[in-house]
Design a protein around this nucleic acid. Sequence first.
DNA 1: CTGTTAGCGCTTTCAA
DNA 2: TTGAAAGCGCTAACAG
Lengths: 356, 356
Amino acid sequence: MKVKITEVALAAGVSSATVSKVLSGRTGYAVHAATAERVRQAALHLGYVPDLAARNLRTGRTGQLGVVLEAVGSSEPDSLLGGVTAGSAVRRTFDGAIMAGLNDAARELEVPALVVYPGGGKPPASYLDGRVDGLLISCDPLRGHGLLEALSGAALPIVALWTENPPPGMSAVDVDHQAGGALATDHLLGLGHHRVAFYGGGEASGVEHFRRRELGYRQAMLAAGAPVQTALHDGALLVEAVRRGEVSAVFAETDLAAAAVVQALSRAGLSVPGDVSLVGFDDILGAEYIAGGLTTVYHPAAEMAAEGVHALMRRLQGESASQLLLPPHLIVRRSAQTQSESPVRQEWRLKRPPKM
Amino acid sequence: MKVKITEVALAAGVSSATVSKVLSGRTGYAVHAATAERVRQAALHLGYVPDLAARNLRTGRTGQLGVVLEAVGSSEPDSLLGGVTAGSAVRRTFDGAIMAGLNDAARELEVPALVVYPGGGKPPASYLDGRVDGLLISCDPLRGHGLLEALSGAALPIVALWTENPPPGMSAVDVDHQAGGALATDHLLGLGHHRVAFYGGGEASGVEHFRRRELGYRQAMLAAGAPVQTALHDGALLVEAVRRGEVSAVFAETDLAAAAVVQALSRAGLSVPGDVSLVGFDDILGAEYIAGGLTTVYHPAAEMAAEGVHALMRRLQGESASQLLLPPHLIVRRSAQTQSESPVRQEWRLKRPPKM
DNA sequence: CTGTTAGCGCTTTCAA
DNA sequence: TTGAAAGCGCTAACAG
C-alpha cells in the first residue's frame, strides 16, 4: 500500500533517520553525497510520498496558507455593487481574479497548497486548528471589518485583502481607490472637460472603497480648479444636468454604473462619447463592449492577491506587519474624448469610425 | 500556549480517551451525558482546538477535499475562448463561479476546508500526499485530458469537472453543451427564423465543448427541417450572408462571439435584433449590455462545481463513480425577436418567405 | 461507562 | 557521517 520511510531506508540500506535527512527538504544536514543519492533513487523507485500529517505533527508547521473568501458564494443580493443589479457576477469575477493571483504567487513561492475555508458558518475557531501557517482574508467591503476584529488577537499571522486599515498586528493590501478616482478624473480634465460629474454614491455609499473613489474625484477637481459637483445616482437627473449643459463628462463609480449611465443617456437620445464622455472603474469583463469601449480604471485584484501572498510569506519569515496600497492604472478606450470632438453627429461617426 | 487534550481531561476530571470520545465528533460512543457536558465545558473554557495533524495522522483521513484549477492564473493567451481576444477575463469569471459553487457545497456538506493546489509545476505526486481525501479537478478544455490520464491509476477518488468522458473509475460532471446549443437554436426557430446560422468554430474549433454546441445547433435544425448552414467565423462573411438574405438569425458559440457579431453587424449598419436575431452562450458578466440585452444560454458553472463536490462525497461514502450532465437553460432578453417583428428596412426583406 | 495503552509516520536530538 | 530512540497529539481497541 503506502510506502513509508522505513521501507525506503531498508531499500537504500540506511536508517530511517538518514532517509528523513535527505528527503525532508531541509538542507544543512551532513549526509554523504553517495548515500543521499542512493536514498533518492530508492525513494523514486518505490514511489515514496511523505505523509504530510506525520510531518506536520512532528514539525508543527504545514507550509500551507489559509484563505478565507469572505464574500464568495454568498447568495445575498449584491445589488449594492455598482449601484445596479448584477447578480453575483461581479463578485465572481473578482474572486476569480483573486484565485488567479493567489495561485500564481503560490506557484512562484513554492507554497504547496492553499487551504480555502468555506466561511459562512462558524468562523474563527476553525482557522486556528493548525491546518495552516498563516491566513489570507479576502474581506467583503460590504461587511465591514467584523471578521478581522474577531481574529484580532490570533497567534496566526494574518494579511487582509481589500483593506486599508487593518487591526494592529495584521498586514493589509488594498488597491488605492482614491488614486484611481483621481486618475479617472484627471483623464477627463486633461481632455478639456471641466464640467465633470461623479456618478455613484447611491445605496452603495456605505462602501469605503466607493467613497474613496469619489474622494479622488473631488481631490482632482479641486486641484484643477474645476467645480466639484454633488454626486449623481439617478439617470434622469443626469440627463437633465447634461441637457442644461452642466455636465459634459462623467466619472462613474464602477463599470456597471457606467453601463447604467450609457443606458440612461441612450434612452434620452444622448450618446457616449458623442454627447458625454465617460470613464468607469474596475475594467470588468465586457468593459470593451460598453459604449463601444469603456475607458476605465483597471482594478488590480489579482495583483493584490499575489502581493498578499508575498506579504504573508514575509511575515512567516519574521518580518513585521506591513501595509500596501496598489496603484491602479487607466485603460483608455473610446468612451472619453476631447471636448472639442464631442459635438459630432451620430451618422457621421457610423461612416467613419474613429481610429483607436 | 496550545491547549491539548490532556489538559482538558485534567480540567474535566476524566481521561484523555474520554475527552477524545466526546470531542472527536464521532457519535456512537457511550459517554454519560453529564460527563460529556463537563468535558465540553472544560474544552470551551480552556479554548481547546484539536490539532488536525495529530488527528489526521491517527485516523488516516483529513476531511478535506483537494481542488485543482487547471486553467486558473495561467497566463497563456486564451484568445481561443469565444474566438475573440478576452485576456484571462472569461476564465476568471468561470473560476470565480467554480469557487462559489465549491464553497456553497462545502459549507452545506460541512467540509471543513478545500485544499487548492497551485498546479502548473509538478502535478500528480503532490496531490497524493495524504493532504486530502479526494480530488476535484477543474479541467481546462483547451488542454485535453492529460492530467486526468496521468492520475488515472491513483488510489484517490477523483471527480473531473468540465468533462464528459473521464478515464474509467473517475466521476465526471459537465454541462450539457449540446442540449444548450439545441436550446438556443430552438428558441430562434420558435421565433419564426429558418435561416439560422452558427457563428463560431474558428480557432476554437478544437474545443470539445464548442463542437458540442454546434452539434446541438445541427440537431435542432435537422429536427425542424431547417437548412443547416456551414459555420461562420468571420464578420464580413456573416454580413454578406445577411445581405443576401441567407441568414436572419445567428446562434453564437459564446457570448463573446456574440459581441463580435454585434460589432461586425453594426459596422455594416445592421442592427441586433432589428436586422438579425442573436442568441449567445454562457451568460457572462455584461451579457445584459450586449445588444441591449443578449438572449443567451446560461452556463451553470457554479452548479457544476457544487455537483462535483456532492459526487466526490458520494464516492467517499463508498458509492461508485458517476457521471452527470447538467442541463443549461435559456435566458431570454432582447437580442432575439420574432421574425415578423423585425423592422423591415432592407429591400430583400420585402420578399420574405411566408411563415409556416 | 471510563481508563489504559499502543501506536499513526515522521523528524530531531544525541551518541556512536 | 550515520543510527537509535523519543516523542509530536490524537484515537481506537481493549480491559476494567
